[in-house]
Amino acid sequence: MRFVVSGKSMEPKFYNGDKLFVSPLFFKLREPRAGDAVVVKDPRGGRFVLKRIGSIEGDRYFVRGDNLEWSTDSREFGGVSRDAIVGKVIFRYSRKISKLIK
């Protein structure tokens, strides 16, 4: 699945406008781990959010932005369930040049 990033909570790894390839199949091969960058269904609404798994407690996955000051994440909406995790970010396939020279 392809996604385009909106927002800056994952800078400097992922910038606003970056295009990502995300695999839903990856987590059929192994379980999500702390440190994985993942696309998650926002438990408060239908949209997708890009975060990193911080910790796993039982069946709850706690996600957070890399940029804690600019992130709304499990600190606010709590842990997410396994089935809310859409997939793992496999690679970034596009970034605007302007992001590299700022």
Binding site: R2, F3, G7, K8, M10, K51, S71
Partner: peptide
């Protein structure tokens, strides 16, 4: 591609 939010509310 779909939009994925890496945002702050």
């Amino acid at each position: 591609p779909r939009v994925v939010y890496a945002h702050c509310d």
